[in-house]
């Protein structure tokens, strides 16, 4: 809280560098002095292609980077606390309750043997306590809030009975509504979904961010999604941040050659 007064950024990544240890014990550098800020209450897109390090950086925020990743420098400040110095307990206290994350494959992130409602209710009780019945009520409310039709019936269903788009809605309900975080990280939340579903999910993300005052970080390779939904953009390439700026600036006056190339490659296909 103290830091929020000083800085307008909820999360600041400073000079974060690191490498993967390969099978022979050698180090392969993958992140180079990555620095960016997530402004409070804004939607920031972290854009990059395969191997840009965009997901790896985000996983590091939650301390769930792959075990072979070795950090060489940098800080990740959340409300002025360096997350990289926290122990497992400290991280657990922040994960889920302060920062939560949505992954690309929502159906893989849901446990197949429990109903979706039960999983949401369990997470609710974990964070807020209360009775099973009250938690289930909140779970149904959350599903209804993310526009899942017939939430009572859907809550009693298992993940395999959900379509990909529906499962992603349920995961967003869990991450944004049940956990009630201040920072929501979405890692390619619409990749692999059909465009009609993708637009609906993105609208939901924007709407939840605005109405609940969330700070949202959207990791994506798709500039099209970014143009319509995000306030700030961070462009990453080959483990480096090449450009940051407001969405308008990035789309209308890209300064970095890589950003320009990426943008023109995305626009080349649009005859609009």
């Amino acid at each position: 809280m103290r830091a929020a007064a000083v800085s307008d950024a909820l999360l600041e990544i400073e000079n974060y560098s690191g490498a993967f240890r390969n099978e022979d014990g050698g180090l392969v550098p993958v992140l180079h002095q990555v620095s960016y800020r997530l402004k409070t209450g804004k939607i920031t897109a972290v854009v990059g292609e395969t191997g840009s390090g965009k997901s790896l950086t985000a996983l590091s925020v939650l301390g769930i980077q792959p075990p072979t990743f070795v950090r060489s420098s940098g800080r990740i400040l959340f409300r002025s606390v360096d997350l990289l110095t926290l122990d497992a307990r400290g991280l657990r206290a922040i994960r889920g309750s302060e920062i939560s994350m949505v992954f690309q494959d929502a159906r893989a992130a849901l446990n197949p043997v429990f109903t979706v409602g039960r999983q949401l209710a369990d997470v609710h009780r974990l964070h807020h306590g209360g009775s099973q019945r009250a938690a289930m009520k909140r779970a149904v409310e959350a599903l209804s809030r993310v526009s899942i039709p017939e939430p009572e019936r859907r809550a009693r269903q298992y993940p395999h009975e959900y379509s990909g788009g529906m499962a992603q809605r349920a995961m967003i309900a869990m991450a944004a509504l049940i956990c009630q975080p201040s920072l929501l990280i979405l890692d390619e939340p619409t990749t692999g979904l059909d465009v009609t579903i993708q637009s609906d999910i993105m609208e939901l993300i924007v709407e939840l961010t605005r109405s609940r005052g969330l700070t949202t970080c959207l990791i994506t390779h798709d500039l099209g999604v970014v143009a319509e939904t995000c306030d700030e953009v961070v462009v990453m390439n080959a483990g480096r941040v090449v450009e940051t700026g407001s969405a308008e600036a990035i789309f209308t006056r890209p300064a970095d050659p890589y950003t320009q190339r990426l943008l023109s490659a995305s626009q080349m296909l649009e005859a609009a």
């Binding site: 465009v195 009609t196 999604v225 319509e228 308008e248 995305s266």
Partner: peptide, 25 residues
């Protein structure tokens, strides 16, 4: 029309009028 209106564009300041398909597939 729904498919076309849902396709995102990598450009600034394009307003879309979405035709939504709501309901059971």
């Amino acid at each position: 029309r729904a498919l076309l209106s849902a396709t995102p564009m990598a450009r600034w300041g394009i307003a879309r009028t979405r035709l939504r398909l709501v309901g059971e597939i």
